[in-house]
Design a protein around this nucleic acid. Structure first.
Lengths: 183, 183
DNA sequence: AAACTATGTGCAAGTATTTGCATATATTTT
DNA sequence: AAAATATATGCAAATACTTGCACATAGTTT
């Protein structure tokens, strides 16, 4: 039920087309809630049908036409209300962790490379977070309230990412030990 | 596609009924991949149909009958093969983080209590992790390889949980500051 | 006696998400 | 000139997951 709310959230400040929204997702809310463009387009249409968004067709020359979506009053109210809904702790749902339950002499080197790959990806993600933090949140205390909320979400991503890197190092060390004992 | 593999993983050592499996999930793999009992029963039947599990009906007196599932050779092979499949980084998909993007003077006290609730839940989770660690993984180095993999997953849960607690404290501190500035 | 807890499995309906494909045009690169 | 990239939206099918309900028995608590 929450991709809808993530999308509405992305439209708080600006009206966007599906394409623009998908791009903005990639560098902000998508850090915490990934969605494919198909899902976004579908959800936008559904939300417009339900009256929570208003879609305006824009004809363009030189580019394909697009539909700009914006929150309706009803949408803003629904979103504000949603914040008070109770939400649950999310599990990691990460294949990698399930795979670790299957660790064996045969697949250990595969797990090493999988963890190394994750480590690299997270490293890149952290560079991106850090750039965003420096650029937009250098002095969080002086930001308006809502921006401070976004900052806190970013901090959650940063500290979570740093912890993950540390775990990767721990795991790789242990796996290397097992491998050297094997030889 | 991975609940299937989580279930098969839970059956590596022991054959279990759906009920037993659901319970074992609650204190192990379910930390990383939660599933309702309905989903588990469905998946067990599907896996049995596909020949990856063998289901054996057991009549019981005094208790309802049950079906004990175990991995077939084919299942074991499929599981072993699955470990080599590539897997992707998972996003948090956490409502709470999306809600933070909607932070405002009106809902700030709600967010405080939501974060406090999460903090409590994680604290309890960490107690449980710690008990498991002490009981079963006090000396990880001497464990067989597969158990060391499980230990690494547990460590991921522990360090991730500790990071989350620290983040909660940071967030609560900031929210308290905003609230006191408001007054 | 009634209520609650534990054991044990399942259907049906709805919602969410992924995967693969399809269609266009304009600009930039090879 | 061909190929790749960016812009822009969508359908259809399959898979995954959640929610609410239903049945059935035994033991324990109030």
């Amino acid at each position: 039920m929450a991709l809808a709310h993530a999308i509405m959230t992305a439209l708080i400040d600006d009206d966007l087309s599906g394409y623009e929204l998908a791009k903005s997702f990639d560098v902000s809310l998508g850090f915490f809630w990934r969605a494919s463009h198909q899902q976004i387009y579908q959800e936008l249409r559904k939300l417009a049908e339900r009256g929570l968004l208003r879609g305006e067709k824009v004809s363009q020359s030189g580019k394909p036409n697009k539909i700009i979506y914006g929150l309706t009053e009803e949408g803003r109210e629904a979103l504000a209300q949603w914040v008070y809904d109770s939400s649950r702790m999310q599990e990691a749902k990460d294949d990698m962790l399930v795979k670790l339950y299957n660790l064996g002499d045969d697949n250990i080197s595969h797990m090493v490379s999988e963890i190394e790959k994750r480590r690299d990806e997270m490293m890149q993600r952290l560079y991106l977070y850090e750039r965003i933090r420096r650029t937009h949140y250098a002095k969080p205390d002086v930001l308006p309230v809502r921006r401070q909320g976004v900052y806190l979400a970013l901090r959650c991503g940063i500290t979570g990412g740093e912890q993950f890197l540390a775990w990767c190092d721990e795991a790789l060390k242990r796996l290397a030990q097992i491998q050297s004992a094997q030889a």
